[in-house]
Structures are given as C-alpha cells and as structure tokens.
Amino acid sequence: MSLWPVLPERDREQWNYVPTVGVGPLRFGMTGDEAVAALDGFTGYVPPPDSRARDQNGLFRRHGDPAYETALYLYFDQPDGLYCVVPDARYGPQVILDGMRLVGQPPSQWEADLTGYLGARGMPLRYSPGGDAGSDELGIITSVQRAGDVVLTRPVLLVQRAWAYTLWDMVPAGEGDIYS
C-alpha cells in the first residue's frame, strides 16, 4: 500500500459542476442539514452554527473509508448557506464541467484545459497573487494537493457572495495552501 494512495478514476463518484448552481447533489445556498441529506454514500457532518463564527465547515468521507480519507470539504456562511465545495484530489469525487475533469489532474494540463475552455467562451483567465489560475465567471480557483512526488488539482468551487470583490476574497482560510 502506498503512503500516498489516490483513488482510481473508476472508483470515484462522477459529479457535474454547474457554475453558480452546484456540484453533484449539492446546491449552493443549502443548509448543513440539507447537504448531509444530499450526500448519499458519504459520512460526515456540519457542526451547528456558532454565534461567534460566521463560517462553518463540514468534512465528508465515503462510507466505509477511514476518517483520515476526507473526500469533501464544504463551507457554509451564515445566513447564505453552502458557498464553497472542495473535492479532495486523492479521495474526492471527480467533478466535471462540460467534459473537463477538474479533480486529480496534473496542474499544467488542468490550466491548459481551463485556458482553452475560457478562451472559446470569451471569458478571462485570472491569477491570484500566488499564481493560482481561476475564473470568477465559473467560480473556480485552482488549488493543488500533494500525492507523493506529484501534485494534483484540488479545485475550490465557489459562488460569489455580495460582499466579495473577487472569488479569492472568499477562499476559506487554508484552502489556498498546498495540501498533503
């Protein structure tokens, strides 16, 4: 067994991404309870709202997987509900946008695919100060995650909130880091 296992593509759930609407069975704006109910085949929870914190986050893994194999990271804002979905590069579902695979890809290939996709639609490619590619129009920001000697894409999928100037203003703390 590898110290850095990556779930084979054939074993991943296949979810579609619809910008500003949702990811697979998840819809932006859902409550934590609604998200838990929608994630059939996953185990996890969203803690109850905390009056001291504006955001909540939920961690989910596939039924039967060890607790350390987190497949999904969900972020909720009070009172707007689910605003950010981050599938894990190693264990998460494959998320597809118009045939483009977003999860577990080599970053250079993913960026080339995104550049072509945006260019064909007349949309700009944006970069964060840290060099992460993304698209405000699509609600996608590139993040990467280590898997042994390689890094794989771990997209941050967001719906822009009224107070944010760009998507990067809304990225949950720590999601811009390289994950192990």
Rank of each mutant, 00 (worst) to 15 (best):
E69K: 10
R54G: 09
P49S: 02
P129K: 07
L97H: 12
A53L: 15
D132A: 10
Y75P: 03
Q105R: 04
R62Y: 04
D80A: 08
G81E: 02
S135V: 01
S51W: 15
R62T: 04
S51I: 14
G134N: 04
L97I: 05
D113V: 05
Y127L: 14
L74D: 06
L138W: 02
Q78H: 09
P79Q: 10
Y91Q: 11
A71E: 04
I140Y: 00
I140L: 03
S135E: 04
P49I: 02
N57I: 12
A133E: 10
A120E: 11
D65E: 14
Y127G: 07
Y91L: 00
G81T: 08
D136W: 11
V86F: 10
I140H: 03
P106G: 11
Q145A: 11
F60R: 03
G139M: 07
Y91A: 11
I141G: 02
P66V: 12
R101F: 13
L59C: 14
P79N: 11
Y73N: 04
V103C: 08
D98Q: 13
S108W: 03
L114Q: 10
Y73A: 00
Q109R: 13
F60P: 06
I141S: 00
M100P: 03
T115Q: 15
Y73Q: 13
P47I: 06
Y83K: 03
F76Y: 05
Q105I: 04
V46I: 14
G130R: 10
Y68P: 11
L59P: 07
S128A: 11
A53T: 13
A120Y: 07
D88M: 05
G148D: 09
Y117S: 07
A133Y: 11
R146N: 13
N57K: 15
Q145K: 14
G122W: 09
R126F: 06
L125R: 04
G99V: 06
L74N: 02
R62K: 10
P48A: 13
L114K: 01
L102H: 01
G119C: 09
G92Y: 00
P124Q: 01
D80I: 02
G116L: 15
L82M: 08
F60E: 01
L82C: 08
V150H: 04
A67Y: 07
A120M: 09
G116V: 00
W110L: 02
Q145E: 15
P49V: 07
Q78A: 14
G99L: 09
D50F: 14
L82G: 04
D149G: 07
S143W: 02
R61S: 01
C84L: 10
H63F: 11
G64E: 09
G148R: 06
E111M: 05
Q56P: 15
A53P: 09
A147K: 01
L125T: 05
R52T: 11
R121A: 04
G131F: 00
E69A: 03
D88W: 07
Q94N: 12
C84V: 05
G116E: 12
V151C: 09
T70Y: 06
Y117V: 00
Q109I: 07
V86Q: 05
R121N: 11
A112E: 03
Q105A: 09
D136N: 08
